[in-house]
Amino acid sequence: MSAATLTRDVGVLSGRSLRLSRRDLDAMLTAIVLPVVILLMFTYVFGGALEVGTDYVTYATPGIILLCAGFGAANTALAVESDMSGGMVERLRTMPVHAGAVLTGHVLVSLAKNLVTTAVVFGVAVAIGFRPTASPLEWLAAIGLLLLFVHAITWTAVFIGVIVRSPDAASGFIFFVMFLPYVSSAFVPVYTLPNWLAGFAEHQPVTPLIETVRGLLVGGTPGAPAGADLTSTALVAVAWCVVLAGVFAAAAMVTFRRRTAH
């Protein structure tokens, strides 16, 4: 088996994963509609009462984009779980297919899907007054960072999908991932949180990510990091993504091989 067959396997299985997610309308709609609803709700319902030093939509959009990315990626846990228990993985293991190509396929499709849903949420945000001030370079950096984040969350989701033994357990993970951005700087500045929460919020991976995206897209607005501050936050964010992706991709592949013998 060679690099050419690996590319073929990943290509074919990505195509499959894409078809399957296109047909899972529920999940697709939730992945788009839910973040949009959250965006509208925070902007119009809570936004007025929250003091963040700038337009609420300007403050909240970067976080909500991240929320949306994480949420869509977490669905991969369900897809992988269903492959593990539904017999497809078993079938593939009796065929001359590269181990793990099915997992890689899910990850690639998750990246593509999340680009699309992110673009939709972004469009809505612009429609209700979000005005990014980013230069083309900052745009690229922001998109790159989002992809890194989706990549890390997706591999984590893949790992969860490989180890759990039921769809319910996989759903539990999705819930957890949806919850993470709430305890971060996504909706309110960290310093407004009670001490014990602020400690968690400050050091969980989502906060530096949101801060970096905020600094890149709407740099110069109150609460957005800039200059050296932005650089160091960005480094922390990138480090988080690389470490999470590395650890969970390795763990997923090892567990996958163990659970499928040979």
């Binding site: 067959t5 073929r8 396997d9 074919v12 299985l13 195509g15 499959r16 078809r19 399957l20 047909r23 899972d24 539904g86 017999g87 497809m88 078993e90 079938r91 593939l92 065929m95 001359p96 297919v97």
Partner: peptide, 20 residues
């Protein structure tokens, strides 16, 4: 052990491609 959300043809073509 086939994908319920793929057609019969899609399933077979996919597996055919994977077998080379």
């Amino acid at each position: 052990s086939l994908d319920k959300r793929q057609t019969g043809l899609e399933n077979l073509v996919m597996l055919g491609r994977l077998s080379g």
